[in-house]
């Protein structure tokens, strides 16, 4: 039947306006986040900063040596995320000078510096976080989603299962029994996790439907955005959602005047990478657990996935389909 095409001549007219063409990115094999500090830690003494970078150094070297590159010479880039979303200290030049100097002295080269605020909202006003928020899909209840139920409207929380007790108002005369929490993908036992994604500092009476300006994103949510950015998975019209700007030699006094991502090492390997490693103080363990939960519910644009798969395939770089499998962590011991 299909062979019986009445008009087998090749077509003359062609009109195809693909809304979005996904750009192939220059990619490293591994993006390493070299430590993290809260803004007040950056403000205070130099010693704790120096100590953390010194502890990062051997693990960074190990990462460089073990990067999965499919036989190519490994390309590894490093990055540092500045916490300017929850705390706002107005002395960027001084802090950046100190940070770059101390890391250099510890033998850790920072290639790229990014602002955490940019993971929520870009310098040009574009809502970066929305790219993740609109692509999160809540897990269906077991045998509870047949395509005839509208997606649960995002409450600002993301869980991996069912809470221990129905928290909603019970319907009149509906029976009420206590049930334990339950992780949908559990293996014998549950680790139930419910992560706050944002709160609405809303104006009184304001609703949380689309009034994104009112949202204050949580630390795990922005950290998830940051991971997806590094992995090249967040795009706006096929381009990376956050772009890299070369350092122009001068830091602006106000953080919100600084570019979203600055390339501070001119000879650095590409910022975006197939995989990521985050070397962080141990206190970030719950945050990264939450990041994983968020990323597990993130549905990437299939065209972006395809573009990355193609690039990896061409160079024989193994790339796991599950995004969380592209993430790795090293947690530095606490104390001094």
């Amino acid at each position: 039947m299909f062979s019986a095409v009445p008009d087998a001549a090749p077509s003359v007219f062609h009109e195809r306006n693909q809304g979005t063409t996904v750009q192939n990115l220059g990619l490293s094999h591994l993006s390493v986040a070299v430590g993290h500090f809260y803004m007040d830690e950056l403000e205070n003494g130099e010693e704790p900063i120096r100590t953390q970078f010194e502890r990062v150094k051997p693990w960074l070297d190990a990462a460089k040596a073990s990067a999965i590159s499919g036989g190519e010479r490994p390309r590894v880039s490093t990055c540092f995320l500045v916490d300017d979303y929850f705390q706002h200290w107005p002395d960027a030049p001084q802090i950046m000078e100190k940070l770059l100097r101390l890391s250099r002295e510890a033998g850790v080269t920072i290639d790229y510096v990014a602002r955490e605020s940019a993971c929520a909202r870009r310098l040009d006003g574009f809502q970066t976080a929305e790219l993740v928020a609109t692509r999160l899909l809540e897990e269906p209840f077991p045998e509870g989603a047949n395509g005839g139920r509208p997606p649960i409207s995002m409450s600002g929380w993301m869980s991996n299962g069912k809470p221990p007790r129905e928290s909603r108002v019970l319907e009149t005369m509906e029976s009420h029994v206590w049930e334990p929490a339950h992780e949908f993908g559990e293996r014998n036992h549950s680790i139930y996790l419910d992560v706050e994604l944002w709160d609405s500092q809303g104006r009184p009476g304001g609703e949380d439907d689309g009034e994104l300006g009112n949202r204050r994103y949580s630390c795990p949510f922005l950290a998830a955005v940051w991971q997806l950015i590094r992995l090249g998975l967040l795009r706006q019209d096929g381009q990376p959602a956050l772009k890299v700007t070369d350092f122009d030699g001068e830091w602006r006094t106000e953080w919100d005047q600084c570019p979203d991502i600055v390339k501070v090492n001119p000879s650095a390997q590409p910022f975006y990478a197939y995989r990521s490693l985050s070397i962080l103080p141990r206190t970030f363990l719950p945050i990264e657990h939450s990041v994983q939960n968020i990323i597990n519910h993130f549905l990437p644009d299939p065209a972006v996935v395809e573009s990355l798969d193609r690039q990896a395939g061409a160079k024989n770089v193994p790339l796991p389909p599950v995004i969380a499998d592209r993430l790795s962590h090293f947690f530095l011991a606490g104390g001094n």
Partner: peptide, 14 residues
């Protein structure tokens, strides 16, 4: 199978 009550409660798309 998903009447008006279910619809209003957000348990049925139509």
């Amino acid at each position: 199978n998903g009447g008006l009550h279910s619809y209003i409660r957000g348990r049925a798309t139509e």
